[in-house]
């Protein structure tokens, strides 16, 4: 176990470093001089030169990268050019929207998909199964942002039950904040649920055909115990992996959804930062998302080893 954790920890670190190099290199070629953006077009060459020196932009790229990574590990991601505040505090503030959004949509996806996947597998080739499969095909085909627009049309424009967009702060309006996140989370969750339901169904079907299930049934165990204790425990492993993989996608998918619902999350932050050429914010957010995905994958790896003790810690 300790050796496994050490090996995976090293791989995790190397992947993070590789990702950070790729991101740093890619962002170096974004057109636009940050010093020029800050000082405007009337800036004198001397003032531009001074600011570049102040920001460290006159140093070789390798040194800029090392300085940046030192900052990343100490929580200093520089100052935002547009907002003129620390990027770390800006990201932390925006994560208050994105993290609950991601968690809510995963919860929606799990509650929609796992019961329907189990139901479909237990009613194979019957009306219920076809119903779930048709719905999941629709879920796979509908873009999350269109699902969002349709939900706004239904719940905000027609019934006026939920807000069409915007966000109220957690501190002053916790219920309002939760309400603002319901529709975006549902639109992200519905699309994810389609994939998870199909995976749950196929994984359950595979496990239900195994010898140990036949043994459990022939011992006279109640159907509920066979399905939920024996089959589901084994069938859930690939589903957990997929949930982990989707968590990363959710963070990125939030970019479009946060724009649909005008939510001040990190997705909207990075999108606006790209438009404003706010390099420190783009670097910070992209690196953070990548780091979160790598860490989530690592945790998923640990989770399915816990769920299935047969998987060895190699």
């Amino acid at each position: 176990m300790a050796l496994f954790l050490l090996k995976r920890g090293i791989t995790l670190f190397i992947t993070l470093i590789l990702v950070s190099i790729v991101i740093f290199a890619v962002l170096m070629v974004i057109p636009g001089d940050p010093a020029q953006i800050i000082l405007g077009i009337r800036a004198t060459p001397e003032s531009l030169q001074n600011l570049r020196r102040q920001l460290g932009l006159d140093q070789p790229i390798a040194i800029q990268y090392l300085n940046y990574m030192r900052g990343f590990f100490t929580g200093d991601l520089g100052r935002s050019i547009t907002y003129e505040v620390q990027v770390t505090s800006l990201i932390l503030q925006r994560l208050q929207v994105t993290i609950p959004l991601a968690i809510l949509s995963i919860l929606f996806a799990i509650f929609l998909s796992i019961p329907s996947g189990i139901y479909a597998s237990l009613h194979r080739n019957r009306a219920g199964d076809y119903g779930v499969m048709v719905l999941s095909q629709i879920g796979l085909a509908v873009p999350a942002f269109w699902a969002g627009i349709l939900l706004i049309l239904l719940f905000a424009v027609t019934f006026h039950w939920l807000p069409a967009g915007g966000f109220q702060p957690w501190e002053s309006h916790p219920i309002g904040a939760l309400k603002s996140l319901l529709l975006p989370a549902l639109s992200l969750g519905f699309v994810r649920a389609a994939v998870l339901a199909r995976m749950t169904r196929s994984s359950m079907l595979e496990v239900l055909g195994e010898d140990f299930i036949r043994t459990a049934r022939s011992k006279g165990l109640p159907r509920r115990v066979v399905v939920y204790k024996h089959a589901l425990r084994n069938a859930i492993i690939p589903v957990v992996t997929l949930i982990g993989l989707q968590a990363g996608d959710l963070l990125a998918g939030a970019i479009i959804i946060e724009n649909v619902f005008h939510l001040p999350g990190i997705g909207r932050l990075v999108f606006e930062a790209i438009g404003q050429r706010d390099l420190p914010v783009i670097q910070g957010v992209v690196l953070l998302i990548a780091a979160m995905i790598v860490v989530i994958n690592f945790l998923v790896d640990l989770a399915y080893r816990y769920l299935d003790p047969r998987i060895r810690y190699e």
Partner: peptide, 9 residues
Amino acid sequence: VLYGFPAVL
């Protein structure tokens, strides 16, 4: 590395 990076991003 590329595969793990969100496509939309």
